[in-house]
Amino acid sequence: MKNRGWLFVIPALAVLAISAFIPLMTVINYSLHYIFAGSTPTFVGFENYVEVLRDSAFLRALVRQLVFSMGILAVEVPLGICIALCLPKRGPGVAVCLVLLGIPLLIPFNVVGIIARVLTQSAVGVIPEFFALFNYSFNVAKDPVDAFMTIFLLDVWHWTPLVALLCYAGLQAIPDAYYQAARIDGASAWKTFRYVTLPKLRSVLIIGVLLRFMDSFKIYAEPLLLTGGGPGDATTFLSLHVARKAESYNLGYAGASSFIYLFIVIVFSYIFFQLMTHIGKGETK
């Protein structure tokens, strides 16, 4: 009976075999072949990988992606914690706030892209008009920084509520006694946050960081809709880059870059996972 656990996991594995395992194998298979627009695939070993790693467009997309995802974590996580701390702990306000925070999460990615276009369209969008007040010409179609920042803020707008909701759940799980003890011990507000709140939020923060990291790595629809990855390649993130290659039926290249991409996400996620599980667990000095 020791392995009866597997019986219970079988349904999940069966579905995932169709939705994850088989496609992944196919991707690996592509990555080892030269396939172009209907021609017969020829086995080329790791040539595709070499090509991808030498491709400056891929490397630029990767760096851009890392900067973006790290920035997302640096902004969304602290902001999410702050919002969670501001939410009411009990009373009728709780359900209202949860619903309000939940709504942005339910907006499809491409609607987010549309919102961004409505807000930033040159000449009449509300954001360019706002910047015009300061004599700054804001134009996502022309200025790479404007475009990048728009996508960045869009993600912060869309996904910080998720981090806030997770942190809120974590906060609710901290018994009042911890705060009472800290008050009795004479801890300052900062020390209470540092030694009571933050350690108790560890498990939800691990998940929050992982989710946001993985999902921000997958960003696709927003830049596609806002500027199609431009201007130039200022908002061509990894997913967009890979999808372009796949759409042009350069499947060998797409497969190899996908695999490298997946490998990078897993490595980073694993590092975060390990770091956050072990940091500050009362290690001896």
Binding site: P175, A181, I184, D185, S188, V196, P199, K200, K285
Partner: peptide
């Protein structure tokens, strides 16, 4: 001072730092 129903300790510190916490404050 108060001792609660369930043990209230600071998870991120070792035993020494826990005991020292009120004094450090």
């Amino acid at each position: 001072a108060q001792v609660f129903q369930f043990p209230v300790v600071y998870d991120s510190m070792n035993v020494f730092d826990n005991l020292a916490f009120p004094l450090r404050n």
